[in-house]
Design a protein around this nucleic acid. Structure first.
Length: 764
DNA sequence: GAGCACTGC
């Protein structure tokens, strides 16, 4: 788990006599070829590199300038390029100069001149780093496009700065803000200096110098252009969130920095890594000057936050719900209005219970006391219900309490919050490679997460944070959350590496390396999917899978669907579009839906199929696409997630496009709406057999005691209540997801025949 | 009889 990549021997697993032999069911597979190290991918630099101490620049915070975020924007300046010099930008320039990062402009520029290629910036929220750093750098001499010789070709290298974001909205809104500040249009097919590229949405004007993109997007670009030739610099923002994608990006960047730059005609790539948390040792160690032949400077920049008073409990609370309610009403009675409360809870169930308690208590408040109103906020809530949590309370003299999951920690900002209550826990998804399943359980948060939650009270003024745990408990928390690459299934990450030509994935440089078990599991699954050949190298199938914006098993099903034997590609695209559009397209029916509940069930009945969830999703998608009148109303009547269905349509269009380009699809189907035609049973069989090409290992057989036992590991699984097959008995089931929460659950379940499973396994 | 949060040619 150290970030050092040159000691694979230590990570090798010792299993029996030969560590490279593993068994799946009755099959024995030799992993020797998979684990064989290739020649060291990170070239040692010549030893003339002088090591510099990393200077830490502490900075005095500029006096608070009120309303700097709200400064009127100058109108986009037509004709481009002579930016931020023109008079119209002046009020905005003043606002920019007030940002804490402005004082570091020269430091930032000079630290990347000459031979220095890497810079690490630690900037708290509100320092302005995401908007200003690219602007500081884009006029630097090293940022110009250059014509160079690569092999026998003359190519252009550099000219653009990429800045990565973990979320789409951030990439889009930051691009919008920077475009305004630079007075340049942000529109396709125009000339401009700023662009963005996220899934389903690309606005990259001609002459773009600064491009915001999601991490996944840059990874896709890396597959096509391993040297990132169009860029002079890559800025990796929010690296502290440590997504799998950002970890892979860091690894690829390290390889580029350490390489001889032949792929870039000798022109160096500058790398700026930006983090909002102070624990940067791991990052510094990772981009070790020894390895990459350049010294990494570190710059610390103060943020702009109001002070937040922190309160811990004196002793551990026995009952979180009770403590929460008491805390809410204490704040309500002691603190003046306005000032809303944001409470962090673990999940929907807890939130709904708390909401009921608050409503009961609230009803007992005397009439001369301000009212209190609770709003839930979590990801699967409808757009409308989420927006209710952002709007000020409807009635006057009312305090709003937002009961939120982790969604309010990073993804959304609730305005008006002065008080935060932190229960100290969060649900975390963890992949258990040995069992091949995920778990989703509430666990203690990390210190950095607690600090992040606290900060949510100080966005608009001084605030208070009440932690429902003791100061000792806080001190005992982990410094940071486990990075995703140590918690998630790394199937996709391993495929990306293989597709990028990394044969020996165990020696790929990573800040945190997953254990060998997980890597082996992923390699074996890729072998099962025929993404890898028996010698561990990537196959044509594997290359194609890496291009699909879906997980490898889904990609494999897409490829199989195009084979004449199954011939159901359009249907499979519809299904996968639905499956990957969000948690579940069906909203859970709640007590509040009561007057319409039967009506909703009646409408839903025409979608439910006895074959299971896959066919149900297909029916839902096809009926939705056939709907010509009001699709939103169609969803409302069935309590179907509108957002997910819209997303599903976009994914469908994207997948159809890719399949057409990859010659899996002869021609694009006619546009919607097309009349709905139910899939005949024999076609349904073909479709399910096709899904088994990706999911044969995720199957279970009905046991005499009516439980389902998995084929691969002989575990008992229960059909999840969200499945249409919940409570039904079938000979055998195939499930697309496998999660431990209260129980070992199979989700997205379909009925299959036992001999289909045998057939699918026999193909290997 | 139950669902942390993101993301992708």
């Amino acid at each position: 788990m150290t970030g050092e990549e040159n000691r694979p021997a230590k990570r090798r697993k010792t299993k029996g006599n030969n560590p490279s032999i593993v068994k799946i069911g009755d099959k024995t597979i030799d992993l020797t070829a998979y684990l064989r190290p290739q020649e060291n991918p990170v070239k040692k630099p010549p030893t003339n590199g002088v090591e510099k101490a990393s200077p830490t620049t502490e900075e005095k915070q500029e006096p608070e300038t009120k309303g700097n975020e709200k400064t009127e924007a100058g109108k986009p300046h037509k004709g481009v390029s002579k930016r931020h010099q023109n008079a119209r930008a002046t009020p905005m320039l003043r606002a920019r100069k007030a940002l804490p990062i402005w004082a570091h402009q020269e430091d930032i520029k000079s630290s990347l001149r000459k031979d220095n290629d890497i810079l690490l910036i630690v900037g708290e929220t509100g320092s302005g780093k995401s908007t200003q750093v690219p602007q500081f750098l884009c006029d630097e001499p090293w940022c110009r496009k250059k014509k160079v010789q690569v092999g026998s070709n003359t190519v252009n290298v550099g000219g653009m700065i990429a800045i990565t974001q973990p979320r789409r909205v951030a990439a889009i809104t930051l691009a919008g803000r920077v475009a305004k500040e630079m007075g340049t249009p942000l529109a396709p097919r125009q000339e401009g200096s700023v662009g963005y590229s996220v899934r389903f949405d690309h606005v990259v004007p001609k002459g773009t110098k600064i491009k915001f993109l999601t991490e996944g997007m840059l990874l896709q670009e890396l597959l096509r252009d391993p040297s990132l030739r169009q860029y002079s610099a890559i800025i990796v923002d929010e690296i502290h969130e440590r997504s799998v994608d950002v970890d892979l990006i860091a690894g690829f960047l390290k390889q580029i920095l350490a390489s001889d730059k032949a792929g870039r005609g000798g022109i160096p790539l500058k790398v700026v890594v930006m983090s909002a948390t102070a624990d940067v040792e791991k990052i510094q160690e990772f981009f070790n000057p020894q390895d990459v032949h350049s010294s990494m400077q570190l710059l610390r920049i103060k943020g702009r936050q109001f002070p937040v008073e922190i309160h811990h409990t004196d002793r551990p609370v026995p009952d979180i719900q009770e403590a929460l309610i008491k805390q809410i009403f204490d704040i309500h009675q002691q603190e003046p209005l306005p000032g809303d409360i944001l409470a962090f809870l673990t999940g929907q169930e807890e939130i709904e219970a708390a909401q009921r308690l608050i409503e009961e208590h609230s009803a007992t408040l005397p009439s001369n006391v301000p009212k209190i109103q609770a709003f839930p906020l979590y990801g699967q809530l409808s757009i409308q219900a989420q927006q209710d949590a952002f709007k000020p309370a409807k009635q006057a003299y009312t305090r709003k309490v937002v009961l939120a999951t982790n969604i309010a920690e990073t993804s959304v900002t609730v305005p008006g919050v002065r008080y935060v209550i932190d229960c100290g826990k969060a649900k975390v998804k963890q992949f258990r490679a040995r069992l091949g399943m995920e778990s989703l359980l509430a666990k203690a948060i990390s210190k950095s997460s607690a600090i992040q939650r606290t900060g949510r009270a100080g966005r608009e003024g001084p605030g208070k944070c009440y932690r429902l745990y003791t100061a000792e408990t806080y001190e005992s928390l982990q410094e940071a959350d486990l990075p995703e690459i140590l918690r998630n299934d790394i199937l996709g990450a391993v495929l990306t590496m293989k597709a990028r030509g990394i044969n020996d994935v165990l020696s790929f440089p990573l800040m945190d390396s997953p254990d060998v078990d997980s890597v082996e599991k992923a390699l074996l699954q890729l072998l099962f999917l025929e993404a890898l050949a028996s010698d561990g190298t990537i196959t044509e199938v594997g290359r194609k899978l890496a291009l699909f914006p879906v997980s490898a098993p889904y990609g494999r099903v897409l490829l199989a669907a195009a084979e004449p034997e199954y011939d159901c590609l359009l249907e499979v695209i519809d299904i996968i579009a639905c499956l990957t559009s969000g948690e579940n397209i069906f909203h859970q029916l709640q007590a509040e839906d009561e007057p319409t509940r039967d009506d909703v069930e009646e409408h839903r009945k025409e979608l439910y199929r006895r074959e299971g969830d896959i066919l149900t999703y297909l029916t839902a998608m096809q009926r939705y696409a056939a709907e010509n009148a009001d699709r939103i109303d169609w969803c409302r009547r069935r309590r179907i997630n509108v957002r997910n269905m819209k997303q599903a349509l976009s994914i469908r269009q994207q997948l159809r496009g890719i399949c057409a380009r990859e010659k899996l699809l002869a021609e694009l189907p006619p546009p919607d709406p097309q009349p709905f035609v139910p899939l005949p049973p024999e076609r349904a069989d073909a479709l399910l057999r096709c899904f088994l090409r990706g999911f044969a290992l995720r199957t279970a057989l009905l046991a005499p005691d009516s439980s389902y036992v998995t084929v691969q590991d002989r575990h008992v699984v229960a059909v999840h209540p969200s499945s249409v097959l919940h409570g039904h008995r079938r000979e055998a089931i195939m499930f697309l997801e496998h999660v431990f929460t209260q129980k070992n659950y199979a989700k997205k379940v379909s009925a299959v025949q036992a001999d289909w499973i045998v057939e699918a396994m026999g193909r290997r």
